[in-house]
Amino acid sequence: MALRVNDIHRVRYGTFTRPRAETGTEHPRVEVVLGYAVRHPEGLILFDTGIGAADAETDAWYEPSRVPLSQALAGAGLGVEDVDLVVNCHLHFDHCGGNPALAGRPVFVQGHELATARAGDYTVPELLDFAGARYEELDGEAEIAPGVLVVPTPGHTEGHQALVLRCADGTVVLAGQSTETTSELATAFRQVGAARDTGRHDLAPAPPWVARLLDLDPRRVVLAHDEAVWEPA
Rank of each mutant, 00 (worst) to 15 (best):
R66I: 11
I144Q: 03
A101V: 01
R12T: 08
N88P: 00
S65D: 12
Q177E: 15
L73G: 02
M1A: 14
V30L: 09
P68M: 08
A175Q: 05
P125N: 03
V221H: 08
Q177T: 12
T187S: 12
Y135W: 13
G120P: 08
V221M: 12
P152D: 00
L163I: 10
L163Q: 05
T171V: 15
Y62P: 00
Q177G: 02
W209R: 04
A54N: 11
G43K: 08
T17C: 04
A233I: 02
I8P: 01
A224I: 07
V210Q: 03
P146R: 10
D121V: 09
L69I: 10
R12E: 11
G50C: 06
E57I: 13
H40M: 06
L3G: 07
P28D: 01
C96D: 07
R220V: 01
V151E: 05
D55E: 08
R212D: 01
E184N: 06
A133R: 14
H90F: 07
Y36E: 00
A2E: 11
Y135A: 02
L213V: 07
P146Q: 05
E81W: 05
A60H: 09
A194G: 00
V107W: 14
E137I: 14
A224E: 00
A72W: 03
T116S: 12
L85D: 00
E42W: 07
Y36C: 01
L69C: 04
A233Y: 08
A133T: 10
H92I: 04
Q71L: 09
V164I: 07
A117F: 09
A117C: 08
A186D: 13
A204C: 00
T198S: 10
T179H: 07
G111Q: 14
D169S: 04
A54H: 14
D226G: 01
V229K: 15
L214S: 12
L185R: 09
D217F: 03
E141I: 04
I8V: 15
P152M: 09
P152C: 06
T157D: 03
